[in-house]
Design a protein around this nucleic acid. Structure first.
Length: 423
RNA sequence: GGAGAGAUGGCUGAGUGGUCGAAGGCGCUCGCUUGGAAAGCGAGUGAACGUUUACGCGUUCCGCGGGUUCGAAUCCCGCUCUCUCCGCCA
């Protein structure tokens, strides 16, 4: 959520930068509403002050035997005025909130301007796509051939966009989760958490999934519960409505979880294989940091994700998202894209975002700065470290061998019980 | 799912209609004291919003949302969460 005071005091700049995302976010209306809101507040608080001071006098006058009927009559009417103005105020504040909850974060000044993904900028590349001396298979063929992925049975059990992992396939999911978490915990100082996979709407609002993107989530019928689209939601909301001590920061959590997405707008896209599923596993990183530290934290988070891919010997590139392709909460975002031979291109496998104070304003996550004793909003970052389903697709395709088997990268072998090849 | 109890400031814990943002205690901060520390003594110690150059002033907040009243932490209604017992269950 944007800071209403920032909108008020710095309207041109805020408006220009938010609208650089390629959409007009109607901040003028917020300005108008804010104006009348403050007008009403001034009036109604004056009346409340009158009521308070008068109410204190009433028992005294009563004791003195004075006639308090005229005062009571007057205060009754004052009370009605207050009630009416409070209602007006509430409706204005609701409208302001309604707008602010769907207004995205302000992009950082150095984010490239662009309307859509075509404006994204490649920052770096690691490794080289393998030059196959034979016709490489896609993972949706490799998996079923090795009997480790079973899409047909999953669609019987549930429907489209689900996978049944079998044998070494199932083992691979478990191995990758453990492998990734170990990297983050042992090398990057993360604390492992395992959150609920179902959250309430306050949590979904806190991280930005609601109210704007309701159709992307699975909602539990007749309850205020949602299946998490990412562990970012429960983990970021751990500190909702808290004031942290400065010395507690930074807090770095990583979490394995299943993720559930309706993929409402993706009908017909990526219909084969593991790339776009309603349920997938992911290891997520979430940072809570002091404002002055969040830019650096984003680089470190990207480094942690890079390490996962490099250790798995998967070629990737890093792309910086342009203003038109940032998520609602992000002020700056890097995607890590892994080389996918079946697609003949790089495919997103991690997304690392600096959300600055956007989520913490929504979720009311603050810290007290020692020096000033002031309360400030924490900055949050989140990033995949990395998506396990897509990682399996990449492993199968990039490390496939001509005989149909798949080589397990050295670093992963101990997590696979010493297995070197899936055959 | 059934029965009961509860929710007050960083913590603990009073408060059943009127000078209550809320006693007391603990904690914390600053000062005094000390060779130093502890103890002791004194002062201070929430957040949001509005207003103000500033000092400050005002409003709101006692789980959440309504209601009664001139006035609600206190009375009434609804909801949420926590705890205990029973049932069920991995």
């Amino acid at each position: 959520m944007l800071d209403i005071k920032e909108i008020r005091n710095n309207f041109e700049e805020v408006s220009k930068r938010v609208n650089s995302r390629g959409e007009d976010f109607k901040l003028e209306r917020v300005l108008e509403l804010d104006e009348s809101r403050r007008e009403i507040i001034a009036k109604v608080e004056e009346l409340k002050h009158l009521r308070n001071t008068t109410s204190k006098k009433v028992p005294i006058l009563k004791k003195e035997g004075k006639d308090i009927q005229p005062i009571i009559k007057e205060m009754k009417s004052v009370g009605e005025d207050i009630k009416r103005m409070d209602e007006d105020l509430r409706s204005i504040e609701n409208e302001i909130e309604e707008i602010l909850l769907v207004t995205p974060n302000i992009p950082d000044l150095d984010v490239p301007i662009g309307d859509d993904e075509s404006g994204n900028v490649e920052v770096s590349k690691w490794g080289n796509p393998r030059d196959f001396e034979y016709d490489p298979k896609a993972h949706w063929d490799i998996g079923p051939d090795l009997k480790i992925l079973d899409f047909a049975t999953a669609s019987k059990i549930t429907g489209a966009r689900f996978t049944l992992f079998r044998g070494m396939g199932a083992r691979l999911v478990r191995a990758l989760a453990a492998f990734m978490i170990d990297i983050h915990v042992e090398k990057h100082g993360y604390t492992e958490v395992l959150p609920p996979y179902i959250v309430n709407s306050d949590s979904m609002i806190g991280t930005g999934q609601l109210p704007k993107f309701a159709e992307d989530s699975f909602k539990i019928e007749n309850q205020d519960y949602y299946l998490i689209p990412t562990a970012e939601v429960p983990v970021t909301n751990i500190f909702r409505d808290d004031i942290l001590a400065e010395e507690e920061l930074p807090i770095n959590y990583c979490a394995y979880s299943a993720c559930f997405r309706s993929e409402a707008g993706a009908a017909g896209r990526d219909t084969r294989g593991l790339i776009r599923q309603h349920q997938f596993d992911k290891v997520e990183m979430v940072n809570f940091v002091k404002p002055e530290y969040s830019a650096k934290a984003l680089d470190q988070m990207v480094d942690a994700a890079k390490e996962v891919l490099e250790t798995l010997e998967l070629p990737y590139r890093i792309v910086e998202m342009c203003t038109g392709d940032l998520g609602i909460s992000a002020s700056k975002k890097y995607d890590l894209e892994v080389w996918m031979p079946s697609y003949g291109k790089y495919v997103e496998i991690s997304s690392c975002s600096n959300c600055r104070d956007y989520q913490t304003r929504r979720a009311n996550i603050r810290f007290r700065r020692e020096e000033t004793r002031d309360v400030e909003f924490v900055h949050t970052l989140n990033g995949s470290g990395v998506a396990i389903g897509r990682c399996i697709a990449a492993l199968l395709e990039n490390h496939q061998q001509e005989d149909g088997s798949v080589r397990i990268p050295a670093a992963l072998q101990k997590y696979m019980g010493g297995l070197e090849v899936i055959a």
